[in-house]
Simulated assay, not measured.
Amino acid sequence: MTLHEFLALPHRFRWGGMGGDDCTTFCGTWLQESIGFDPAEEYRGTYASSKGAHDILARAGGVVAFAAAKLEPVGFKRVQHPHDGDVGVVKAPTGLDGETKEICAIRFGPLWALLSPSGVVAKKLDHVAVWRAPGGDPDV
């Protein structure tokens, strides 16, 4: 499945990645569809709220530490220059107060695609950390 095909699917926001995805399992679903590996598999269905997701990420030391622990042991490389299909942690605005949070997203051209309660959105955002799947182009 290509990234364009994946993003065009009817995505549904559901905490815990059952019957839909949240912002973190969305990236796991992309990796499952594109390379056959779901880093979120063991967490799907184990939480059903924002608090449940936050608790898992807090125990891991934050979203960057969580992603690194799931991706790097299976050969994902941390890169500085994102390419289409790379997964990363970005700073994204949440709510009306302008607060930003670190969330998982997929690189899509010059934008980052992420899943929000209103569906897939693509925005120009700053990345905090980016990983490329094993066998992907080297970081140049």
Rank of each mutant, 00 (worst) to 15 (best):
A133Y: 08
A65D: 03
L7K: 03
V89I: 15
A8I: 07
E33S: 14
H81D: 06
H83S: 14
D97Q: 13
A40I: 07
S116W: 05
K77C: 06
L71S: 03
A92I: 05
R59V: 03
L57N: 00
K91T: 00
F76A: 10
I103Y: 02
G119V: 05
G17V: 13
A8Q: 15
M1R: 14
G98F: 06
D97V: 11
F26A: 01
A67E: 04
K101S: 14
A65I: 05
G85M: 10
D139H: 12
G85K: 07
R132K: 10
A48F: 14
E41Y: 02
A60L: 13
R132E: 07
R132C: 03
R14T: 12
L7F: 06
L125Q: 02
R107Y: 00
D97P: 01
G28H: 03
V121S: 11
E72A: 15
E42K: 08
G62L: 08
L114D: 01
P82V: 04
T94H: 09
H54S: 15
H127L: 00
E5M: 12
W30C: 01
W112A: 00
I103E: 00
A65V: 07
E99L: 08
A40D: 15
E33G: 05
K51A: 15
D55E: 15
P138K: 10
L9E: 13
D139G: 12
V87N: 01
V64M: 04
C104I: 08
R44A: 05
K91E: 04
D84P: 04
K70D: 00
K101L: 10
T100D: 02
D97K: 10
T100V: 13
L7S: 07
G95L: 08
V87Y: 00
H127D: 05
E99M: 12
G136H: 13
A122G: 11
A68S: 14
F108D: 08
D97E: 11
V79S: 03
T94G: 01
R59P: 01
F6G: 04
F76V: 13
D55K: 08
G98R: 12
V63P: 00
P134Y: 12
D55H: 10
K70R: 15
E99R: 12
E5C: 06
A65N: 14
K91H: 06
S49L: 09
G136L: 01
C23L: 03
W131R: 08
D97R: 14
I56K: 10
I35N: 05
